[in-house]
Nucleic acid binder design. Structure first.
Length: 335
DNA sequence: AAATAAGCCAACCGCGAAACA
DNA sequence: CTGTTTCGCGGTTGGCTTATT
């Protein structure tokens, strides 16, 4: 299978993205929708490889991305899900729709890995670690047990995992920031203009940072790193839906940017994108169903909790079956 | 104040799966 | 059915920032 690497071409730019490039990329996605990345560089004139464009979109420009510090709730979910799924960052990210897989992966590697190690040394066992231990036990006990035994063990481990996750999710009260985030996410699902605004906000923040950094005489390196740093350092206050571009920059960059690109044409594509790449089907259905029936927002934690705690899902919904999360391929020696 | 180390994160790379011809 | 192309994922790296000596 001889595949020509897409980035081997001469003249393909690498490194940090400039605001101009971001705008070109968003403009293209606005018109054509996400996908067909191969054609993007030639159609837009961007001197970037298709991969780079896709990555930039999915990890940075895509609507609905939350940046800044991870909440306790998010942290717990990542730990739980990592224990359940392993390093399936895309799968884990699907349960944290506002976070990208890259973000979660980075956060895991830089924070949680160490934290887990530290806690593992200090604590004998708590809920999180009983889950981990359970799953470790699950994988380590595989080779020496029969399938029937293994299935019983699996069931016990599933129950243990459920209990641990339930406990972890119960730690936060219903008015936690996480729920607020979910509320925001749900709003986005139901309001496509908000989705666009969110993407606009990303660019506006980026432009704001770019302007800010280019006027700064002290740090020349900023201009080359522009977007990354300015948005990476955005604290949680900027993630509450309030564009900080206007509060800081005087002129409404949001408005300026929105005037560059119409709202309507982006709506279908971005909502499609969001539905394609965010929450798992089951959760989307739940959210939609709840919204239609009661017009109320259902916290993701509740949905996830219900999904995990509902005994019936193990029998009725093989697609969402927890057993499918623990890949049977990982234990081929059993069968 | 300067040098060095550690932390952090955006972006790159290679591989495998899915889609397509 | 087979070969090719495209896409998505996870691991890794490069370079910037911050902390420490």
């Amino acid at each position: 299978m001889g595949r020509v690497p897409c980035c081997d071409k001469m003249g393909v730019k690498k490194g940090p993205w400039t605001p101009e490039e971001d705008i070109m990329l968003v403009s293209y996605v606005q018109q054509h929708g996400p996908g067909n990345w191969r054609a993007l560089p030639t159609k837009t004139g961007l001197r970037r490889c298709s991969k780079s464009c896709r990555l930039r979109w999915t990890n940075y420009l895509r609507p609905g991305i939350k940046r800044g510090n991870f909440t306790d709730q998010e942290e717990k979910m990542i730990i739980q899900l990592q224990a359940l799924l392993g390093n399936k960052w895309a799968a884990i990210a699907s349960y944290l729709p506002e976070r990208t897989d890259n973000d979660i992966k980075n956060y895991w590697n830089t924070h949680l890995k160490k934290k887990m190690k530290r806690l593992d040394q200090c604590h004998g066992s708590n809920d999180l670690f009983s889950l981990e231990n359970g799953l470790t036990h699950l994988s380590s006990s595989n080779s020496s047990t029969s399938r029937g035994q293994w299935e019983r063990t699996l069931q016990a481990d599933i129950n243990m995992a459920k209990k641990a996750l339930h406990n972890a999710l119960s730690l936060e009260n219903p008015t936690s920031s996480h729920n607020n985030n979910i509320k925001q996410e749900n709003t986005q699902v139901s309001s496509t203009s908000t989705i666009y605004a969110s993407s606009t906000e990303n660019i506006a923040r980026l432009l704001q940072g770019w302007i800010g950094s280019s006027t700064s005489s002290t740090n020349n390196s900023e201009s080359s790193k522009t977007s990354s740093n300015n948005i990476a350092t955005t604290d949680s206050s900027s993630c509450d839906g309030t564009p900080n571009a206007e509060t800081k920059g005087g002129m409404g960059l949001m408005e300026a940017f929105e005037s560059l690109f119409g709202l309507e044409s982006f709506e279908s594509s971005s909502s499609d994108e969001l539905s394609q790449t965010t929450t798992p089907e089951a959760i989307k259905i739940e959210i939609k169903k709840e919204e239609n029936e009661h017009d109320v927002e259902v916290p993701l934690s509740i949905i996830l909790e219900n999904w995990l705690l509902d005994e019936n899902t193990l029998n009725i919904q093989p697609k969402n079956d927890l057993t499918t999360l623990i890949s049977f391929d990982e234990t081929p020696q059993l069968f």
